[in-house]
């Protein structure tokens, strides 16, 4: 089962390396990882998407807590949360199909952020499913390159981690 876990860490050098090394060493797979600052400059948030059953998740959580710089770990599974991912997709768009591509982007509320004679770059935000769907549709025009940020998430309501 897929889990989104949020890890609050002290904003110190090598923290990310420690987290990544822990996953590698214990044989856990990371599907995606996103890291960035929080409202407190001393604290960063790492959002991880991982696969595993309850037992594995429990171990992951406990092992994360063993890292001295990890302050808090939360699993969003079975809670109410919002999650988003951002992707940039550069797609072939010669004149003949350009408006078609633009229309597809429009349907997904994706924005065109760069235009060139033969290509368009679209920016899309949403759940991974939505991004997958857009990617699927754009494939037939030829995706030149794309990048995704990995998911980030927050609990719904006034609760915080």
């Amino acid at each position: 089962m897929q889990h989104i876990i949020s890890v609050l860490v002290e904003n110190k050098p090598r923290v990310l390396a420690r987290v990544a090394s822990l996953f590698a060493r214990r044989g856990y797979n990371i599907e995606s990882l996103a890291v960035g600052p929080t409202q407190d400059p001393q604290i960063s948030r790492i959002t991880l998407v991982v696969h595993g059953n309850e037992d594995i998740l429990e171990q992951i959580t406990k092992q994360l807590y063993k890292l001295i710089e990890v302050i808090k770990v939360g699993d969003f599974t079975n809670t109410s949360y919002v999650d988003r991912e951002l992707a940039l997709i550069k797609v072939n768009a010669p004149a003949a199909v350009r408006s078609e591509v633009a229309q597809i982007a429009e349907i997904f509320r994706a924005r065109i952020v760069d235009v060139e004679e033969k290509s368009l770059t679209v920016e899309v935000t949403g759940t991974p499913d939505k991004i997958d769907a857009l990617e699927q549709l754009l494939r037939k025009y030829g995706i030149i390159e794309m990048t995704r940020t990995g998911r980030i998430a927050l609990a719904r309501g006034s609760k915080s981690l």
Partner: peptide
């Protein structure tokens, strides 16, 4: 050495 010993120490520090 902090990189090398990451998995074999409880914690490590590089003092900058």
């Amino acid at each position: 050495i902090t990189g090398i010993t990451m998995p074999i120490t409880k914690h490590n520090f590089l003092v900058t």
